[in-house]
């Protein structure tokens, strides 16, 4: 399901919506499974994104430090 067009922001919004729905406890278990599955995917996406971002930033900062 993960699409390449997905942004971190969209992912976070979707994740937060899922979490809110789950918290409402109106969620059907079966549905819930799927929701959780989706949430897990989103989390994985975000984590990866975060990790990648962190790496990118550190790389850039390292350049700055080297140029100091």
């Amino acid at each position: 399901m993960a699409k390449k067009e997905l942004t971190y922001k969209q992912a976070m919004q979707e994740l937060e919506a899922i979490l809110a729905e789950i918290e409402s406890e109106d969620v059907d278990i079966d549905k819930m499974t799927e929701m959780i599955k989706r949430a897990t995917e989103l989390i994985q996406f975000c984590k990866t994104r975060l990790t990648n971002t962190k790496d990118e930033i550190e790389k850039s900062l390292k350049l700055l430090d080297n140029n100091k």
């Binding site: 971190y8 976070m12 994740l15 937060e16 979490l19 789950i22 918290e23 278990i29 819930m32 499974t33 959780i36 949430a39 897990t40 989103l42 989390i43 975000c46 984590k47 975060l50 971002t53 962190k54 930033i57």
Partner: peptide, 21 residues
């Protein structure tokens, strides 16, 4: 921001794990 984002994610993960049937 990263930490925040990470926290969010960790929280979401834990929540998801907690609510898993």
């Amino acid at each position: 921001r990263l930490q925040q984002a990470t926290q969010h994610i960790i929280y979401a993960e834990k929540f998801i794990q907690a609510v898993h049937p």
